[in-house]
Nucleic acid binder design. Structure first.
Lengths: 328, 328
DNA sequence: CTCTTATGTGTAACCGGTTACACATATAGT
DNA sequence: ACTATATGTGTAACCGGTTACACATAAGAG
């Protein structure tokens, strides 16, 4: 392994000089710089991040904690975070907590032990305790907290939009899927939808479910058994929506004529479903980027205009909802 | 930050003793161990991985490089790798190369600089050059190489199975999707399918496409325009299959009566499509675990029974293929 | 009772960077 | 000519672990 001392010897200078050239810090003579850079190139020297990190107590790594890497929404967040970080010369340790608190704790510890410079957490635990007395900056992503920096989409509005759009298109007996209670964003979209539904002349049912694949299928089955007269479904995310769409078609419901479905998230696969899924789009990629930017600001101790960044959601009209009737 | 010296002071011993107790190495007296462990607990001491890594030139991190985190096949691999590693007390740096060689190079560098103890690479570059003179053990995953350890599924057999099953079920004019040429596993399944198709009394078309979402949609459109008489499609992966299924339904083809489709991978969403997608299953999670095990063996310099582990693939019969006619 | 071996512990060097500080020289200001 | 300041470089301490080695004591062998 080539070390800074090898470079120093080759260039005929001290390690301090090499370090200064390397980091553009302090003074260094033009000629020396050239000498050092040549030596670096010739030896193909790459500084050891670990040594650097040990002294500075700061690595160039960011910890990103996801609740469930299988849900396509999260990889999309990750891409946003990663692209932004890459531009800053930083890299990601992605941890998958698999919705298990133990794994989350483990990863936070790993992050600390490896001197990550900041953490972005998208897990779905209600408590932020784990993060309370961390000396590392943390940004919560797709998660709402009062006293911590966070980036999330406007769940209240999302829920409202979903309800409004499905009502506007004529559903009268609506099933509203409620995501896990501990996930605040899920509750927001739920509340938003409830608000709208209450104000409208429609009946509705609430069904609680988790966000996982497995649960989605079960819920879909029971939904149609218990509430066969349902003519509109507001799903808690696209995964459940896919499962419901699947089950609805299986039992011969006609979509969207007989039953409308609105998803939530707009994962890449949603438009490949048939019929393509109408959904409330969360700008996952951009949320990732924003979270990364926010974290960078905190790390660099720049003043923050806002601690919490709320991103807009949009209704993506595809074909699990009917065309709205023109009445103008 | 609590350091080993703090612990030593509190326990009234030297740092060497603390280190020995910590790692169960060398001798240490029962009483001393108790003392040290108490001090550790009281101070809530966690060893600094970075310092450890600097001296040992080995971290407890594994680098996992994925070509495209959005393709659900890869997160599934990642889960397998992660679960196995977790049991070994190791952690993952997941890098998303986004199919870009530059990112791949970058990540390999990051992995090196952070003293990862091993690398698992699932990228789709043909050349293994980048990995040639790395001093770090590398295992290739979902990738076939001759002179490097690797774990992959039996593409040849997968292709054959797909062809055989679709032929058995009566398709006569088959479109065969060929994945990216540089991806060896894609070529294998392609070749396997070609083999079978040639031996059968059917016509077939070859169409080349990438593995990405975007491409999948385009290919689906052109496929039906150029070859409207197609009555069976062997897709290069489930993503393309989903896109094709979608397009087929859009233009009013009846699945599976009029047109059969077989996917490849069996990603979690495949069974949520409608009709649920018949596909060739690659045991992604298990592949991940095997790759992790193999890497561990190499790291621990255990003898390897085999350098390359080939995993079996299975045909998952769902409903984009017809029931096979009983003729017994 | 002495010699060997096993057990237990501390000192200090080391890993590969960074940086405070000392020192030397050049340049500018008065 | 004489400071004051800017520029350029080297020495060595430091980050927080690990471990080779020295040393001390206890136990076992003959």
């Amino acid at each position: 392994m080539v070390t800074i001392r090898d470079v120093a010897k080759k260039a005929g200078v001290s390690v301090a000089t090499v370090s200064r050239v390397l980091n553009n810090k302090g003074y260094s003579h033009e000629d020396t710089r050239k000498l050092v850079n040549e030596a670096i190139k010739e030896l193909n020297y790459k500084p050891n991040e670990v040594a650097r990190s040990l002294f500075k107590k700061k690595s160039r790594l960011i910890g990103l904690l996801l609740p469930d890497i299988r849900n396509p929404f999260f990889p999309e967040l990750a891409r946003g975070v990663e692209d932004e970080m890459q531009e800053q010369g930083l890299h990601l340790i992605i941890g998958n907590a698999d919705e298990k608190p133990k794994k989350e704790i483990d990863y936070i510890e790993t992050f600390k032990q490896n001197n990550v410079i900041g953490i972005i957490s998208a897990t779905n635990q209600a408590e932020t305790e784990l993060y309370e007395d961390l000396s590392i900056p943390v940004v919560f992503l797709d998660r709402i907290t009062n006293n911590h920096p966070s980036v999330y989409a406007d769940g209240l509005d999302g829920g409202k939009k979903a309800a409004r759009e499905i009502i506007k298109r004529g559903s009268k007996r609506i099933a509203l899927l409620r995501g896990p209670i501990e996930v605040r964003t899920a509750q927001d979209r739920f509340k938003g939808a409830v608000d709208e539904l209450c104000n409208a002349n429609v009946d509705f049912q609430v069904i609680t479910s988790s966000f996982s694949f497995h649960d989605a299928e079960k819920v879909a089955k029971t939904l149609f058994e218990k509430f066969p007269e349902t003519d509109g479904i507001i799903a808690s995310n696209d995964l459940s929506a896919a499962a419901i769409l699947h089950e609805a078609l299986r039992i011969g419901r006609s979509i969207p004529d007989d039953l409308q479905i609105i998803g939530y998230d707009d994962i890449p696969l949603s438009k490949l479903l048939f019929p393509p899924l109408s959904t409330i789009r969360q700008p996952a990629y951009d949320m990732g980027r924003e979270a990364a930017k926010l974290l960078m600001k905190i790390i660099e101790k720049q003043p923050l205009e806002q601690l919490n960044i709320q991103m807009p959601v949009t209704f993506i009209e595809r074909q699990t909802t009917r065309k709205v009737e023109k009445n103008d």
